[in-house]
Design a protein around this nucleic acid. Structure first.
Lengths: 226, 226
DNA sequence: CACACATTTCATTTCAGAATGAAGTATGTG
DNA sequence: CACATACTTCATTCTGAAATGAAATGTGTG
């Protein structure tokens, strides 16, 4: 039954040692069992057992390289799930312990269907700074200025209001710890950028590459260098 | 530390009974502890314990309605996370979420002095989606957009603020298990609809009938077919 | 007011599964 | 080939958390 398989996957992820290992892999790199055992604070035997289970469940894949075995996500969906879970974490004050400064994820990537990563955060910042959007209890509202701006950019905002999903809202970026833009507006924003060849989706990855045309156009549009 | 809080959230979700309850709520409706205990296949005591933990972790919110307590997602991120997890499930055929088709009450009826039933829920949904109202701790606030909207519709909202009773708030609909609009705004909203002959009260009944004029007018007004 | 029903709380039991120590397999190195 | 390293497997122990029965709390109903 479907429900049982959901329960077993969730149970697999919901174990302290395992989620810690999964989290460590969020940078897209592959790690050995020993490295992951240290991250999770368990013995190598334990780590091996945990990793074995996750490989069986097709959450992780392993690639043998001599006497080393490197573990990494088996599929992109795993990263989405971990990211979604990390968004449930209580939003705390920025304690900014510079421990996790060594987590270099893609500068620009997608989160569901919109732009995330440092680039996503920068764009979000500019849209607010230029007062095209204003925040109002966890939602973004479009200003009069914004209406003109998005129209000029070629986005039909009227259509977006008809949709069920929120028009625009902040979404905490897990790597930047600051919000990027989400909602239907963010979705068409990315679509438009791809259509204009300002950005390109990298096949089989959540990475977005920014074209040089995109760089200059975004600078013209928002006054920010990406 | 941040990692620990991720682990605790993941652990919370990764428990068979809990994920089953969370999955059941994916339809956006609110359920009682007893109903959820059946879904999860555990005793009511167990369900209560599990639900309590999820409420403490701010995954769920509870709204008291007489001797019933209805549980639903505390925030939209929870739905995202469950969805992301369900995408990890081994490829399956489409699952249809059980719908409560077995509660045939009037489609449109009054609850005290405002519109309830499926029609009431739909109207409520649209008012929020169109951002005429925004929720803020169990109360609805009117947005700038909303001010224009209600004024155009012929409702003097200033007068309503003077009243003792809440201006607008969500009220959990017992048949739909989702909120409809309540408060003084809801009261005059219904009054106006009756005055315009968009709806008629059925004598000696709480049923409301919608006129064809009402159907088209409401579609024009809110973009929803009732 | 008595009673039924929904839900929670508490004290206790139970058990799945994580951790561990020891041993086994595989690969690389001097 | 002996030995170190990386990792897994197995058998066993141990524990945190879920389940349960009993009882309390709260809220409608006849």
């Amino acid at each position: 039954m479907e429900l049982e398989s959901l329960a077993s996957i969730a149970g697999l992820i919901g174990e302290p040692a395992r989620i810690k290992m999964l989290w460590a892999m969020m940078d897209g790199k592959a790690y050995t069992a020993t490295e992951l055992s240290i991250v999770a604070g368990v013995s190598p035997q334990s780590a091996s057992m945990h990793l074995g289970k996750m490989v069986s469940a097709d959450l992780l894949k392993v690639s043998n390289q001599g006497r080393h075995r490197y573990f990494s996500y088996a599929r992109e969906e795993v990263a989405y799930a971990i990211e979604a879970l990390s968004n449930l974490t209580p939003v705390q004050k920025q304690v900014t312990i510079p421990v996790h400064k060594d987590v270099p994820f893609e500068y620009c990537r997608t989160c569901y269907d919109h732009i995330a990563g440092r680039a996503g955060v920068l764009i979000n910042d500019r849209l607010l700074a230029l007062e095209y959007l204003t925040e109002k209890n966890q939602r973004y509202e479009m200003t009069a200025k914004g209406e003109v701006f998005f129209k000029d950019f070629g986005i039909d905002t009227d259509k977006l209001f008809k949709l069920k999903r929120p028009f625009a809202r902040p979404c905490l970026d897990w790597s930047e710890r600051r919000p990027h833009l989400a909602g239907s507006l963010a979705m068409v924003f990315l679509k438009k950028m791809i259509a204009e060849d300002w950005m390109r989706k990298i096949h089989d990855s959540r990475t977005l590459s920014i074209t040089s045309k995109g760089q200059s156009s975004i600078y013209d549009l928002l006054g920010v260098k990406i």
